[in-house]
Computed example of a mutant assay.
Amino acid sequence: MAKKSISKKKLARTIFQLAVSIIALYIVLAKTDTAKLLEVISTASPWHLLVAFLFFNLSKVLNALRLNRFFRVIGLNLTERYNLLLYYVGMFYNMFLPGGIGGDGYKIYVLQKQHGIRMLNVFNAVFWDRVAGIFALVFLTAALLPPSTFAVLHGEYIPAAYAVLALSYPLSWLLTRLLYKQFTPIFLVTSLESILIQAAQVVSAWFILLALSLPSNHIDYLAIFLVSTVATILPITVGGAGAREITFFYSLNYLGLEPNTGVALSLIFFAISAVSALVGMLFQGKSGKRMKKVKGMDEGNAG
């Protein structure tokens, strides 16, 4: 009965996420000149998109390296190769199995099962890795708002943006010290990695803008891109689909900018994310058996 109840909850969550994504995309596409949107996407430069794809995956490699630092603190000594493959499997679960165990849940389950380490310790590492990423995201968003058109329209809020810039990492350090003291020795390096991760994604988005031949207002689009990334953190859509598009559409309209390029950017970024996540499909298997095989090969080579 308990398993059936859990399955029903997962199904309900999946249906909810799909519904939110579909409704959000419908709202955007219904209000957008779809013919022009398709024209913008179809004329995108493939070489710029390739560079965008590479920078996106660079951000994911850096993210896996950062996560592995947290694992080492709790006594999990994973090879970088095994950890990277596990990370991509987690991406696959997040993107293509909405409402299920989720990417973080999969990693926690596999690592606890294969290494016999306390699940709470693995959860703490994965959770604080996520928090580190959120602080970097907020920091960079605050950095891009002052030079954007938003500052022209609402200059009264810019001091708050500077305050966020000044206080983000002192607050992050304080919370780490109070809540997860074991991670303080790696605070500086993981904070730097977090900024590099988000910066790599911003560069990826910028190359998409170049692919779409956007002549101006790049800062505005990139600032909205970061804001839309904050919107995708909430697990109410499938892989962020719909949340990013609707944020772009209404934000660009509010700033008086042309929304088609922003919507095209968000759709292409989602496509890059999905294609990248498909790599994880090659390594996922029931109860992590394929991942266990890779782990064993790495340990054998190390020996």
Rank of each mutant, 00 (worst) to 15 (best):
F187S: 01
V189K: 05
V189P: 00
S191C: 11
S191T: 15
L192A: 10
L192V: 09
E193P: 13
E193R: 06
S194G: 15
S194P: 02
S194N: 07
I197S: 10
I197C: 00
A200W: 10
Q201F: 12
V202Y: 12
S204A: 03
S204R: 07
A205G: 08
A205W: 06
W206F: 00
F207G: 01
I208D: 01
L209Y: 05
L210K: 12
L210W: 11
A211K: 13
A211Y: 05
S213T: 04
S213H: 04
S213F: 03
L214A: 08
L214M: 05
S216A: 08
S216E: 14
S216N: 14
S216F: 00
N217V: 05
H218F: 13
H218K: 08
I219Y: 10
D220A: 04
D220G: 02
Y221G: 03
Y221L: 15
Y221F: 07
Y221E: 00
Y221C: 11
L222C: 07
L222F: 14
L222W: 01
I224Y: 11
I224N: 03
F225P: 06
F225D: 01
F225N: 06
F225E: 00
V227E: 14
S228L: 14
S228V: 09
T229D: 12
T232M: 10
I233L: 14
L234N: 15
L234Q: 09
I236R: 04
T237E: 08
T237L: 11
G239L: 10
A241K: 15
